[in-house]
């Protein structure tokens, strides 16, 4: 092993934009002058330091497309009693600086150079790294098939609703299906239950064509969905998973 490999340094990142996605989710755009670039699906470690030296550190997925620009987007859910997400949502202002380091993670990643077709399954804020994949895919104008099945508790909790519709409307755009698990609004055209085997088959999330599969969401969601996919014949090494919390933050 090469022991001389450089440390992943902490970088100063300046908040340059903050926008509301839903009532409890915001996207923060940071300018990171020395950002080395990232692959879709990777995350950063973010560090906050109080005046007396107390430090809080958390990992957040990158939402913006893969690339080497100096701006990255982090989309962050406000967690009840979460000291980092609460600070970012309620205290952080444009122009403030925080520290982050990355990119981190070398498995839950996607590169357009190995585009075998994509099946993406998101639960709640699990959409964030998958949005990075979809944005990257749109940037390179991929012509391979991509499907997204996105499960939200209710329609008003859907993150990136317009952004996803715009991606779906592009030539060879993602084939988008929403499902809501706790009541659909009038005129709802999507699915209306938790993701199960029947829904996966109906929406053609089958192993045909050997697509790469990415599943991201709360642990119980990923456990269930990845289990269904394995039972449908998706090989284990084609199903990449990332489980969020519940970790109390």
């Amino acid at each position: 092993m090469d022991q001389t490999i450089a440390t992943i340094p902490w970088l100063l990142a300046t908040a340059v934009a903050i926008r509301n996605e839903t009532a409890t989710v915001k996207t923060f755009t940071f300018d990171v002058p020395d950002w080395p670039g990232h692959l879709a699906g990777q995350h950063v470690d973010l560090r906050l330091t109080a005046e007396d030296g107390y430090v809080a550190q958390r990992s957040y997925s990158i939402a913006s497309a893969s690339g080497t620009g100096s701006h990255i987007d982090l989309t962050i859910d406000l967690v009840a009693d979460g000291e980092v997400s609460e600070f970012l949502h309620n205290e952080l202002r444009i122009g403030d600086r925080i520290e982050l380091r990355g990119p981190i993670g070398g498995y839950f990643t996607w590169s357009p150079r190995q585009d075998n077709g994509l099946l993406l399954l998101a639960g709640g804020s699990g959409i964030v790294p998958l949005m990075s994949i979809l944005r990257t895919r749109a940037l390179v104008k991929s012509e391979r098939l991509a499907r997204l099945l996105y499960s939200s508790r209710s329609a008003d909790r859907i993150i990136y609703r317009e952004g996803l519709e715009a991606l779906a409307a592009l030539p060879n755009g993602v084939i988008l299906t929403h499902t809501v698990t706790r009541g659909a609004p009038p005129g709802w055209k999507g699915e209306r239950s938790r993701i199960g085997r029947v829904m996966l088959t109906r929406r053609e999330f089958t192993p045909a064509g050997h697509p790469d599969v990415f599943v991201c969401g709360p642990a119980a969601f990923v456990e269930t969905v990845a289990g269904h996919l394995a039972a449908m014949g998706h090989p284990e090494d084609k199903v990449r998973t990332e489980r969020f919390g519940p970790t109390g933050e």
Binding site: L12, L48, T49, A50, E51, G53, Y54, V55, A56, D81, G82, E83, E86, F87, E91, L92, D96, R97, I98, E99, E249
Partner: peptide, 13 residues
């Protein structure tokens, strides 16, 4: 180490 403006840390153990 960069002190974050306004961060106090509410979940100290």
């Amino acid at each position: 180490m960069h002190v974050t403006r306004g961060f106090k840390g509410k979940r100290r153990t």
